[in-house]
């Protein structure tokens, strides 16, 4: 049996949840979940249009909304709602980019295996080598504030705030507990899953707290039989 899924950024999670249900129900012992992405063959406008198909085609698409644009509107809404000055929020988001690139450098399978400091120093070295004016960024934060190297994609988000376009693939084997014992001595167990969706962004009103996210997390906790307080770590 083969099945295909499309759920934009959540495609892999949707496929894994489905595979989980086939295994948990006892219908299948082993399910292979595979995912691929091939974006670098497209130019930026074409790729941006393709991703924008995740939005409502009647009432969001015609406004020219893009995926970075959705999260940019969320950032402005969040800044206003919680009274966090945009400069401060941008600083916090820049720290996420710095942390993620640091983690990327530690992962041999990461798309980018360089820290933001590496990228900054490479630019300084290149300018020095070519005899061009040498940039004077004091640190990574100043580098990330520079729109010449970190251009604005959708205000307030700059390039390093956004997901990169990628070519890649990943696979996961889901197996029943009995089968798992024969496959590995270090299985990862799934205690609970949840899934929800919602309509166009505007119908969700204040989307700093997405109902679909709250309800799907509740489903997963209920299925797992634990309270959020009882879980050691949380990831969405």
């Amino acid at each position: 049996m083969r099945k295909g899924f499309e759920g934009v950024c959540a495609t892999a999670s949707v496929a894994i949840r489905d595979a989980f249900m086939w295994v948990a129900s006892g219908y299948n012992d082993i399910v292979l979940v595979g995912g691929t992405e091939r974006v670098l063959v497209m130019d930026t406008p074409y790729a941006t249009r393709t991703f924008a198909m995740g939005s409502d085609s009647y009432y969001e698409g015609p406004a020219g909304i893009t995926f970075p644009g959705v999260f940019a509107m969320l950032a402005h809404l969040y800044s206003h709602k919680y009274g966090i000055p945009l400069v401060k929020l941008k600083e916090q988001m820049a720290m996420v980019a710095i942390k993620n690139h640091q983690n990327g450098k530690l992962n041999p399978k990461a798309q980018f295996q360089a820290t933001i400091r590496d990228l900054m120093e490479a630019r300084i070295a290149r300018a020095t080598q070519r005899g061009q004016p040498v940039p004077t960024w004091a640190d990574e934060m100043e580098f990330l504030r520079d729109i010449k190297v970190n251009p604005v994609i959708a205000d307030p988000l700059q390039l390093y705030d956004c997901c990169p376009f990628s070519d890649g693939a990943a696979a996961l084997v889901l197996a029943s507990r009995d089968k798992t014992r024969r496959l590995t001595d270090k299985p990862v167990l799934i205690a609970g899953v949840g899934q929800c969706s919602a309509g166009p962004l505007h119908n969700q009103k204040d989307f700093t707290r997405m109902k679909a996210r709250i309800l799907s997390a509740k489903q997963a906790y209920t299925q797992a039989g634990i309270e959020p307080q009882g879980a050691g770590k949380h990831g969405i």
């Binding site: 930026t44 406008p45 074409y46 941006t48 249009r49 924008a52 020219g64 909304i65 893009t66 970075p68 644009g69 940019a72 509107m73 969320l74 402005h76 809404l77 206003h80 251009p151 604005v152 994609i153 959708a154 205000d155 307030p156 988000l157 204040d206």
Partner: peptide, 13 residues
């Protein structure tokens, strides 16, 4: 309530 300036547009915009 919120807004953004799209600086990298989809094809056709």
């Amino acid at each position: 309530r919120t807004f953004t300036v799209i600086r990298v547009a989809s094809e056709g915009f």
